[in-house]
Amino acid sequence: MSRADVCVTACADAFRGDGEIVAAGIGGAVTILGTRLARLTFEPDLITTDGVCLLTGDVPPLNEAPEVIEGWLPFREHLWLVLNGRRHVMLGASQIDRHGNTNISCIGPWERPISQLLGVRGAPGNTVCCATSYWIPKHTTRVFVPRVDMVSGVGHDRAAAAGLSAYRHHDLRRVVTNLCVLDFDSTGGSMRLASVHPGVSVADVTANTGFPLVIPDDVPETRTPGDDELAVLDRLDPAGQRHKEVAA
């Protein structure tokens, strides 16, 4: 069992209890595997995609076409689904702060960036309309920053400040990284250390985080996948793409 296996399982656990909604994994092999592992184990009603625009009736390995197609989700329908909300998305982030605001747009001043990235894409709408989690493959102080340069995904403080329409469906769930699982404390919406992966200390996490985390007295270890889950992962990802995505 590798660190990547723990990360995929932690991503899968983000979808626990979601039922019959679309689980969208955006940002590489680990999030896609997380959705598919959840569906094949504890969340059988979950709806997963081929990574393009098909809802798959079966659950194929990475990079393989499904044998059964149960639905069609072209971009226009996907954007409608975001607004509808029957969806939980696992996004990526170039920067994230303690309230869960994230940036994928640009680094430096927006008016003339030092580094232009993707643009906000769908992050603003996703975060105020859908359940949202994040996958961060390399947990460092470059990503976990006191303040993000351009708020693309909306965090707890910004949603609250923007009023009812921004917060009524705002549902930020968890942040999975190569080191740990983070969630948000129920009072102030500040990022909280939920568990550390096996072999990682609390000090490792705080040293790589550029803001103070809420640290409970007792930080549990992230659960490890069972043999049944590892067998599913080996079938879904025989080439081991997940291992290449996770920083040691």
Partner: peptide, 13 residues
């Protein structure tokens, strides 16, 4: 009208 964009820096820029 839409919710998408509320709370984000899309409003700032």
């Amino acid at each position: 009208p839409t919710r998408a964009g509320l709370g984000s820096d899309v409003m700032r820029v």
